[in-house]
Design a protein around this nucleic acid. Structure first.
Length: 871
DNA sequence: CTCTTTTATATTTCAATATAT
DNA sequence: AGATATATTGAAATATAAAAG
């Protein structure tokens, strides 16, 4: 079997115009498929899919990284693909591209493309359509995402363990050697590639061949249900790549085509280098990808949206928006994806896998051979190491479509670019991975509707490479010791995928409409002893990517305070964008069902209003007798459907001390997961979308003496607070504890993710049962060495908070630049030690905490505006 | 309350221009 | 210098959701 089209170089046949028709082997074990390339317009070639009872490839002759075609060992019976096409060029050039490891191909591509046979490990890590995300959405991962937290869980049973150990032993991590790069992650991760002085180091094929080859006979197959073991992505179209089009990339739904298209792989001519292989750049929605109901309700000949038809045609006709390079890169991307997709999509064979939620914040230590998938929640700090965003991106960046030209790199508010720095490690060059993550109400994961886009050009100073990691484009930039492990991200653009393309993917449950906010996610893997790596991750603030939203929706960037006495009356300064003279500020409390329990408009002081500033008098809360701080939110309202994201705000009991709360944008999701006990404030909160705590906060349940008053209930996973724009408001740390608590055990918990950030009080909360393990923090001493940690020992709700430093107050820096976590904000000088009733919070000054200065409204405004103004 | 039509909003594509390669 | 590509901006065209009838 030959697949000339899958050589990972620029010179192979034009995959952009390649359409591979294939059939699910269960249905058509020996269906021959066709490939059509532009330069073979009259020569259709075979792509035979031979049904095999087990996944894999047989009698395959795949070009390896050396450009040679070789017969792969037949590990097991498997489906095979036969593609015979005449390459436009000979292979040696491909070899070049592979061996030098340069270019956009990247480690991932070369590795994957080297092996079209089935690496078992990949099967391990591949998410299947049976394995829905715990969030209820396959979303960005969709049904074929390999990066599933589930599949990639390092513990896959004995066999898996052996495999991993073996893999680890075979390939050492050499972050600096150009010839001994770290082992790529099993799911094809760009992994912890190191940088040589001259740039990227490459991974010689010998580094992974044995592993991959060996994987092909691993335990997955032994456990694989016979009927499903061959659910190869190529055979079971799930993503856009499996969406059929005509050879010209045009969607066709003629009856004659339907059967064929159901199992057609499509490589669109429109794949730009930056386009996501998961997306069909042009109308290419596979029947297979359509929801069942969709099929039933529609006539294949007419259910294609006219727009899709039109654009498909346009694309097929034109494709002119791409340069040759782009096309080449597109080919690479496609090839990469094809190759990646060549890996089995295996159903979960381990019964416990489904309980391994991707929402869990995982321990940051991984084997080099089993790096965490992109949807795993990782901390930003562990031990002395912390990955930190020094300069956040601007909250608006208009993404570009595949049909458009680039819209440039994401910029920072000061006109520069985002800056990321790794603290606590300065030994060897590392790779900083970037990808586009979600910014919605759920845990961070790769965004289904957006992809990273690599910006090149004269103005781009940062070298970068892109790679596909399980349908997610990952950009890799070097973190170099000579740069103090700091990188300016001037090469990261954002690509928007068409909603319809993504939504129609099989298994996709997310909708793209109004899902236009993303976060840049930065991740790095720091080599540790014994072949392990410490993986840290930090997401940026949310970035609004739609043109319209960016132009019209009000955006709150900062606020002078996050709380106010329940009586209201205080002035709140709001800094942001798109404020109008008619902007209103609405304070809302929402209940369980999402309906407003209370709503009031703050009085905007018009004479102080500016396009980027609002000053509003906080309205009093309806119930002045609240006993505990009450989390509400506010948003800026510019008229119908033009409102900002909800922002956190809290009403304090009249007897409670004033507390300055770190400003954080409040996403809708705050409430959607129920009440949280926030680390920074110790406040009860319930989100704007309605929550369990909404009911608790309702008048019926707010009585602390009532049995129904259950302030701290183990509930759904607590979400990490979303990143906040800045932390430079004058604030001081504080500690919190329960007031009026007789329990001698009521104290700050030293074992939490962030020491001191949690309370422990058996009288108020079963915290001990929740906080069962050590934290990521250096202070805990548990994870400091980062050596023996394999799986999280604490619940996600707590660990999640450690995910990003952005979730916490900016900590003071030590002389060597390291940041020391601090606990909570507040002014130790402005509150009393007096009790505030059961369940309320009392703040205690922290010994070494800097004192907050007494500030005026003008001070706040000045600080806010100064920080926001371009440098 | 349901269905249809209209309106408003959101998404996607296209065009123009400037600049870089 | 010309051709081509990219970056940037703006807005038209189209799709879709919400509101009105």
């Amino acid at each position: 079997m030959r697949i000339h089209s899958l050589n990972c170089n620029h010179e192979t046949i034009d995959l952009q115009n390649l359409t591979v028709h294939h059939s699910r082997p269960t249905l058509a074990p020996d269906v021959h498929s066709l490939i059509h390339t532009p330069d073979m317009s009259s020569s259709w070639v075979h792509s035979g899919l031979q049904h095999c009872p087990r996944a894999g490839f047989t009698e395959g002759k795949f070009p390896n990284s050396n450009g040679r075609t070789r017969a792969e060992p037949t590990a097991i019976d498997c489906p095979s693909i036969q593609i015979t096409a005449i390459p436009q060029n000979s292979l040696p050039k491909a070899e070049q591209g592979d061996s030098n490891g340069n270019g956009s191909q990247g480690i991932l591509g070369s590795r994957l493309l080297d092996h079209l046979y089935l690496p078992l490990e990949h099967g391990f890590y591949r998410e299947t359509s049976h394995n829905l995300s715990p969030t209820g959405s396959l979303s960005s991962r969709s049904c074929f995402s390999d990066a599933s937290s589930i599949e990639s869980y390092p513990y896959t049973g004995e066999d898996g363990e052996m495999e991993l150990n073996d893999a680890t032993s075979r390939v050492a991590f050499h972050s600096t050697s150009p010839h001994h790069s770290p082992l790529p992650s099993p799911e094809g991760s760009p992994s912890i590639r190191g940088f040589s002085d001259n740039g990227w180091s490459s991974i010689p094929p010998q580094n992974h061949h044995p592993v991959a080859r060996r994987r092909s006979a691993g335990p997955v197959f032994r456990n694989c249900p016979p009927d499903e073991a061959y659910l190869h992505p190529l055979l079971l179209p799930q993503g856009p790549l499996s969406q059929p089009t005509s050879p010209r990339g045009k969607r066709r739904y003629s009856n004659a085509d339907v059967v064929h298209q159901r199992s057609t792989i499509q490589a669109s001519p429109e794949h730009s280098p930056t386009s996501s292989p998961i997306a069909s750049p042009r109308g290419n929605i596979a029947d297979e990808a359509l929801p069942t109901s969709y099929h039933k309700a529609t006539d294949p000949t007419r259910d294609v949206p006219s727009k899709s038809r039109r654009t498909s045609e346009a694309a097929a006709d034109g494709g002119s928006c791409q340069s040759a390079d782009e096309q080449s890169l597109s080919q690479q991307t496609v090839k990469r994806e094809l190759s990646r997709e060549s890996f089995l999509c295996l159903p979960s064979v381990f019964p416990w896998e489904k309980s391994k939620s991707s929402s869990m914040t995982h321990a940051p230590i991984f084997r080099t051979s089993s790096l965490p998938p992109l949807d795993w929640q990782l901390p930003s700090q562990s031990g002395l190491c912390e990955l930190k965003i020094e300069v956040e991106p601007k909250p608006h960046h208009r993404a570009h479509y595949e049909t458009e030209g680039s819209r440039g790199a994401v910029k920072a508010a000061n006109g520069g670019h985002p800056v990321v720095k790794l603290y606590g490690y300065n030994e060897k060059p590392l790779s900083l991975q970037l990808f586009i993550g979600t910014a919605d109400e759920r845990l961070l994961r790769p965004h289904a509707f957006y992809q990273m886009h690599r910006i090149t050009g004269k103005a781009v100073s940062t070298s970068s490479q892109e790679a596909m990691l399980n349908s997610t484009k990952v950009l890799e930039v070097p973190l170099l010791p000579e740069n103090d492990m700091q990188a300016s991200i001037d090469c990261a653009g954002i690509l928007k995928l068409r909603n319809s393309d993504i939504e129609l993917r099989k298994g996709e449950t997310d909708i793209g409409r109004k899902n236009t906010r993303v976060r840049l996610v930065f991740r790095t893997h720091i080599p540790q002893a014994h072949g392990k790596v410490l993986s840290l991750q930090v997401p940026s603030i949310p970035i609004e990517c739609s043109q319209r939203s960016a132009q019209e929706l009000p955006l709150v960037e900062r606020q002078s305070s996050e709380s106010c006495p329940v009586t209201g009356g205080e002035q709140l300064v709001i800094i942001g964008q798109n404020f109008t003279p008619d902007s209103k500020v609405i304070f809302v409390e929402k209940g369980l069902d999402g309906r407003n329990l209370w709503e009031a408009e703050g009085q905007v002081i018009r004479e102080k209003a500016q396009p980027r500033r609002l000053v509003v008098v906080v309205p009093p809360y309806q119930d002045g007798a609240i006993m505990v701080p009450l989390r509400v939110h506010f948003h800026v309202h510019n008229g119908k459907r033009r409102r900002s994201q909800p922002q956190r705000f809290s009403y304090l009991p009249i007897s409670a001390p004033p507390v300055m709360i770190k400003s954080e944008p409040c996403d809708d999701y705050y409430g959607s997961f129920g009440p949280t006990f926030t680390h920074d404030t110790g406040f009860l909160s319930h989100g704007p979308m309605g929550s369990y705590m909404g009911a608790l906060n309702s008048p019926l349940h707010r009585d602390p003496q009532s049995p129904a008053f259950t302030p701290f209930v183990p509930f759904l996973p607590t979400l990490p607070p979303p990143p906040h724009p800045q932390d430079s408001l004058p604030m001081a740390p504080q500690r919190t504890r329960y007031a009026n608590c007789d329990s001698a055990d009521c104290h700050l918990c030293s074992d939490c993710v962030r020491p001191g950030a949690e309370l422990f009080c058996p009288s108020h909360r079963g915290h001990q049962s929740l906080c069962q393990g050590p934290s990521f923090g250096a202070q805990s001493g548990h994870y400091g060495d980062g050596a023996s940690l394999e799986r999280p020992k604490y619940p996600p709700s707590y660990a999640a908070f450690s995910q990003t430093s952005n979730n916490f107050p900016q900590s003071p820096s030590t002389p060597n630049g390291h940041h020391v976590p601090i606990k909570a904000y507040g002014d130790p000088t402005t509150y009393s030690q007096e009790s505030h009733g059961p369940g309320t919070i009392k703040q205690e000054p922290m010994e070494s905490a800097p004192r907050a200065q007494s500030i005026t409204l003008d001070d706040v405004t000045e600080v806010l505006e100064r920080d926001l103004s371009p440098s």
